[in-house]
């Protein structure tokens, strides 16, 4: 059953032009941070000045995976963990398009971890947005690869024995050209990062620490959405350009946020063109050729 239209009398919300308003209110719980990130993403897409016909949003399964269903752009909701490989095919088939992958930490880095690693390694021109809510929200709050050591989830009722990943360090180690992390309350900086990530050529990654009061906060003594949001923000320290290996998420200490990586690497498609031109030298000389082209491009960009 489709709900009847809501409050037609009021003026449109400024984001309504990119929302599937006939599907709003969305399914996210009261106080969920995904909505804030989604709002920020819509602002970023508008600010980045792209032709909106050329933007595609691809997501996987889970709470954040529902983002694709609410944005009024070409969007695809894939199977669990497979947003990145789907986006890979889409981007390579239509290099002129801008592909944004938006999904959760469990989808992108547990079941989809292998794809994440390899897309970053190839430096595919994708923007990957990871909403990290420290658990699997959609299924009721189970252990995620981000769940802090000792935190309670339904599958770690006495506390998690697992060590979580540092997603930003992983992305940087695999070759991502843009890596940033913010909390859902760093809205202006997050939006700036999203614009930069969308405009960046290559594999860019933005992680957002977002409150999940319903599933995560409730089991870990912070039930109120505002308290959870404030806690993430209050404990965060901004350390731009910090080695992401040192950008730890430590709830007893600091949650390090900032823009950690912004560098240039040739993308998969650049390299594909280079090696398949056939006049290129053998593989030892090819590296030299690539650096030369990279330099020429950097020069042209300035």
């Amino acid at each position: 059953m489709n709900p009847e239209p809501i409050q037609a009398a009021l003026p449109c919300h400024p984001q309504d032009d990119l929302l599937r308003t006939d599907r709003i209110p969305h399914i996210w719980c009261s106080g969920c941070g995904i909505g804030i990130v989604f709002n920020s993403l819509i602002t970023a897409i508008k600010k980045s000045g792209l032709n909106q016909d050329e933007v595609a949003v691809v997501s996987g399964i889970g709470c954040t995976g529902r983002m694709a269903g609410y944005i009024a752009l070409d969007s695809f909701h894939t199977t669990h963990g497979r947003a990145i490989p789907f986006a890979t095919g889409l981007k390579l088939a239509r290099p002129q398009g801008q592909v944004i992958v938006a999904s959760g930490d469990g989808d992108l880095l547990a079941i989809g971890g292998n794809h994440f690693i390899h897309a970053a390694r190839r430096n595919l021109d994708l923007t990957v947005i990871c909403v990290n809510n420290f658990n699997y929200g959609m299924t009721g709050g189970q252990l995620a690869p981000s769940t802090p050591f000792g935190a309670k989830t339904t599958t770690t009722p006495l506390g998690s024995p697992d060590e979580p990943f540092n997603f930003c360090a992983l992305a940087a180690a695999c070759g991502a050209v843009y890596v940033a992390r913010w909390t859902a309350l760093h809205i202006r900086r997050l939006t700036t990062s999203l614009v930069e990530a969308i405009q960046k050529k290559g594999f860019s990654f933005v992680e957002i620490l977002a409150p999940c009061p319903t599933a995560f906060g409730r089991r870990n003594q912070i039930r109120k959405p505002v308290e959870l949001l404030r806690m993430y923000h209050d404990r965060s320290v901004v350390r731009n350009d910090l080695d992401p290996n040192l950008a730890v998420i430590d709830f007893a200490g600091n949650l390090v946020v900032g823009k950690f990586v912004d560098r240039t690497r040739t993308t998969f498609l650049d390299n594909y063109g280079l090696v398949n031109r056939r006049e290129a030298p053998d593989w030892l000389g090819l590296e030299h050729e690539r650096l030369r082209e990279e330099k020429a491009r950097a020069g042209a960009g300035q």
Binding site: P14, I24, C32, G35, I36, N39, T43, I187
Partner: peptide, 15 residues
Amino acid sequence: RFCEAICPEFAIFSV
């Protein structure tokens, strides 16, 4: 317009 940016529900904005 911070209320507009922070609202996860697209329920508030200012003009």
